[in-house]
Amino acid sequence: MARMGGFGGTGRGLLRRVSRWAGWTAAYALGLLALVSAGAWVWWQPEPKARGTEANALWARHQWVGEPHSDAEYRALGALLKQNRITDVYFHAGPFDGDGTVPPAKYRYARRLVEAVRRYAPGVRAQAYLGQVRKVDGGDGIDLDDPAVRERVLATDRIFLDLGFDGIHYDFEPIYPDDDAFLELMDRTRELTRSRGRLLSVSLEQPTLVDALQPVYKALLPRHGRFHYPPRPTRDFLNAVADRADQVAIMTYDVALPTRSLAGLHYARHTRWTLELIGDRTTVFIGVPTYRPVMGWADDLDVALRGVRRGLDQLDRPPARPYGVGVYAEWTTSPEEWARYRATWLPRTPDNFGG
C-alpha cells in the first residue's frame, strides 16, 4: 500500500509539473501574440503614401455569359468598368466538367456579352474565367494529369477564343507547387493564346510564408479527398507560373486574422513579396474582397486596399510590368464599396477625387 501511495504522489507531482509547463507555455504564447498585435497596430497607424493604379481586374458572375441581358444592363456594366478603371474582367464561363468540356448551354450569351463590352467599355479585356476542383487522390473533380483531359480543356479554350474573349483565365484548385501537369497545360495554353494575340491569366493561392514548411505540411497532412495540406505556391513555382502567364492574380483574401492591423500586415507582406518576385515579368493583381467574411474576421475591402498600399510603400521601386488589385467579386460589391475603392485606391483625377 505504501508503494502504491508513493506512486500516486509521483504521478500527482508529474501532473503538476506538466500543468505548470502548459501554463507557462500558454502565457508565453499569449504574450508573444500581444507583442505582435501591438507592433502591427503601431505599424498600421500611418496613412499609406502610395496610391493605387489604373490596371485592375474584376471577377464577374456567370450570369453574364449564361443569361440574357438588356442593352441598358450592358451599358451600366460598361460604365462601371470605365468609372472604376477596370482593365480586365474575368467572366465566369465554366466550370469545366470533369472531362475538360463546358456544355454550350452554360455560355449561350457569351458572344453578345463580348460585343457589349467592346461597345460600352472599349479597351477593357473580357476574359473567359474557367476552372474546376482539381482531382486529388481519386476524389471528384478534373484530372489534369490525364493528357486527354488537357487536350479537351484546350479545345474548350479555343471555343471561347473563337467567341471573341480576349484571354483565358484559369482557376484550378488546389494546385500544389509540384504540379507539373498544370504547368504543362499552361505551356500549351500560352501557345494557343499567343497564336491568337490573346492573354493567359491564372488565379493562385497566396504564396507560402516559409517554403521549407511545405514538406512538413505534406508529411503531416497527406493529400486525401478534401483533407490536404495548404496548396501554397513556393518561390520556384510562382516563378514558373509567371514565366508562362501574362497575368497572375493572387487570391490574397480569406484572411482569418482577428484585427484589422494584422490583416493589413498580411496584405502588405504579400503585395511586396509577390511584386518583388515576379512584378518585372508578368502583370500582377492582388486579390481584395468585397464579400462578407464567414467568420466575422477583420478582412474587408478597406483593410485590403490600405494593406496593399502599405506594401507598395515598402517597394524600393515600382515593378516593370503593370500591377493593381483584383476585386472579388462583381456580384458582392456595393455602390458604397465602389465609391470607397475609387477614393482610396485610384490615382487622383478630377473625375474620381473624393469618390
Rank of each mutant, 00 (worst) to 15 (best):
R3W: 06
G5I: 13
G11W: 15
S19F: 08
S19R: 15
A22N: 13
A26K: 00
Y28K: 15
V36G: 14
A38V: 14
G39E: 12
A50Y: 01
R51Q: 13
G52F: 05
N56K: 01
L58W: 04
L58I: 12
H69Y: 07
L80D: 00
L80C: 07
K82I: 04
I86R: 05
I86P: 00
T87S: 06
H92V: 15
H92S: 14
P95G: 04
G100R: 01
G100F: 02
Y109Q: 09
R111F: 11
R111V: 12
V114T: 01
A116K: 06
R118E: 10
R118N: 11
Y120A: 00
A121R: 01
P122K: 09
R125H: 12
A126H: 01
Q127P: 03
Q132F: 05
G141N: 13
G141Y: 05
G141A: 14
G141S: 14
G141T: 13
G141C: 14
D146R: 09
A148W: 04
V149E: 10
R150H: 10
L154C: 03
T156C: 07
D157F: 15
R158C: 05
L161T: 03
L163P: 11
L163T: 08
G164Y: 00
F172Q: 05
Y176R: 10
P177Q: 09
D178T: 01
D180Q: 14
L183K: 08
L185Q: 06
D187S: 12
G197T: 10
L200P: 04
S203A: 14
T208I: 06
D211S: 06
Q214K: 02
Q214V: 12
V216D: 01
L220G: 03
P222K: 14
Y229Q: 07
P230L: 08
P230F: 02
F237S: 05
F237A: 04
N239Y: 07
N239M: 10
A242S: 02
D246W: 06
A249S: 15
D254R: 02
V255C: 01
R260S: 10
A268L: 11
R272C: 09
W273H: 02
L277N: 00
L277M: 08
L277V: 07
I278K: 02
I278R: 06
G279N: 03
T283E: 11
V284K: 04
V284N: 05
G287W: 08
T290E: 01
V294Q: 07
V294A: 12
G296E: 13
D300S: 06
D300W: 04
V303T: 10
R306G: 01
V308N: 02
G311N: 02
P319Y: 03
P319M: 07
V325E: 01
V327I: 15
Y328I: 06
T333K: 08
T333L: 10
P335Q: 08
E336N: 10
Y341D: 11
T344H: 13
W345P: 10
L346H: 00
T349N: 11
N352D: 11
